[in-house]
Amino acid sequence: MKDIERNNGIFHNIGAKISDFFYAISVGIHLRRVKNGKVKHKSISSQSKREVLFICIMMAYPILCFILNYVFVVGDSFLLAFQKYDNLNQRYYGFTFNNIGKVFKDLFTEPNFGGYLKNSGILWLISTFINMPLSILISFCIYKKIPFSGFFKTVLFLPQIIPGMVWVLIYKYSVDYAWPIFFGDFNFLMNPKYDFLTLVLFQQWLSFGGGLIIYTGAMGRIDPSLVEVGKLEGFNVWQELWYLVLPTIYGTISVPLTTCLTALLTASLPLFMFFGEYAREGLHTISYYLFTIVIGNNSSKELFPYSAAFCIVISLLASPVALMTKAFLEKVGPSED
């Protein structure tokens, strides 16, 4: 570990020296130009012009990318949602509200969608009311520097580091090879009675350390004098968590809550990694359904407008809720004072 720190220190020094070197060169050039009388006094307006030029040059590329990668895609989503597909000429044409109408009809009358919504809802409830509090609690343990917290910090973050596909394969093959030793030939993943629960447990197993970076980062910025005051007041660990830590990191916790409806409608299981496009109907979530009508063997260009319409409906339903939730959370949230 010391070697790593030393290496980082070396990198830091080299970086600083390179930066200093170039800065010294630019100052040297400037001084020479001043000496030769080539530098004119900069007026405020010329400084502003230089600043505007700097901003334009620096931001031109990101803005261009934003337009190409986001604005046009959003625009195309709106366009596509109101188009029909011509199978004969293989092109999208016309203007229709049928796609949007079908989405609403499916959402409220199609029995399959009830199942998708139920699955998505269960996943959202678990991630919001079980996973998030447990993540905060785990981060609090790390923040309180319990014994071996450095070790736990590393291990708990492993699921975020190692590719999901690697975990899926390890899980699949451990079910095939190792589980029979304990459970006989009973395969939880292939049994319709247990497969949903098994996948939920798999997902939760890997996600408790997910908030570690954000939550420990926020907790690390709690004013130590506040903690001292808590100690003098005789706060125990739970009181410290409830009265000091949670109000201080409230801003961080409230971020995922603001997008709750989007999260609810797009909650998903790693179905594609486990089953590709052939997951059992009873396991489907809305996001899996939307994904498989665009990608894979069940996809069809005819369904592209319907999938775009679905995205628009999700945005229409979720955006006002997000704004209202944000306003509500800001109003009811504790003040850091």
């Binding site: 895609v73 195309d76 939307l290 665009v294």
Partner: peptide
């Protein structure tokens, strides 16, 4: 844009990216 989720349909991404 962090709070309000505008629709970014995968189908549109494929269609638009093919176009450009």
């Amino acid at each position: 844009l962090l709070v309000v989720q505008l629709p970014v349909a995968l189908a549109s991404q494929i269609r638009w990216f093919t176009k450009i």
